[in-house]
Amino acid sequence: MSEINVTKKSSIKRNDTGLKVVIYIVSIFFCIMTMFPFVMMLCNSYKSTPEIQASTLALWSAHPIANLKKNWQIINSMDFHPIEGFWNSFLVSTCSTLLNVYFSSLTAYAITAYEWKLKRAFSAIVIGLMMVPATCTTIGFYQMVYKLHLVNNLWMLILPSIAAPMTVFFMKQYLEGALSMEIVESARMDGAGEFRTFNQIVLPIMKPAIATQAIFAYVGSWNNLFMPLILLTDKHKKTLPVMVSLLNGDIYRKEYGAIYLGLFVTVLPLIVVYAFLSKFIVEGVALGAVKG
């Protein structure tokens, strides 16, 4: 009996190494596949167009610095202004993230900490709305904004994030586990107003949830293309993704190096942020999955 067990164990072990090799090969292949486009983007951004036409795959260029300068001049000479786009995107993403997490926390607190008549109906509506995509409202939204003469106004991209049902839902789930009413009560005893209690006691408790949601709100807003493409027609108001979509135009057809550099500039901030926060971001995704 024990002999059989031993042989079984050893056979499992032998199977293991075979399986492990397969696992590592496939995983590494997928990682290379994932990195390949980005490596190509980086390596071609400092090449000249003839060099790219000779070979896209070559990793190095004869005159990287000179080519980089030239490509940068080309993208700036067209309607592509990376700095302006970066600033607009930064403005929109930062403001809408702040509004999103602050007001979502406030709404979630209203649902969790207080008893009010319409509370149940309200939270049911929030959950029901989670899945309604903003694009279904586009035409009405555009008409409204147009009537108010607010086309090209970046605030029209920022203010809607005050009402973010998805974030409210997540915050509510988090608060239900993390908030104890005793802390709130004791703050009340000390004479703090309700609003102050929220800002000084509840918000710090919610920090982990806020951090996770802030990252996703920021990335989502930074990458948004549909709404900005419809609302922004002034070339000085365009956000980075709208500018990126300009790179597809015919004027760039021949300037491959400039296209690669333009793309690289637009993802550089994202890659830098990801390099520092990747572990945290991946954990945040996992947290959202379990809660959702």
């Binding site: 007001f103 979502s104 406030l106 709404t107 607190y109 209203a110 649902i111 900490a113 207080y114 008893e115 009010w116 319409l118 509370k119 309200f122 005050i162 009402a163 409210v168 929220f198």
Partner: peptide
Amino acid sequence: GYIFAIPF
């Protein structure tokens, strides 16, 4: 509860 839900 109502007041805090108003902005949303």
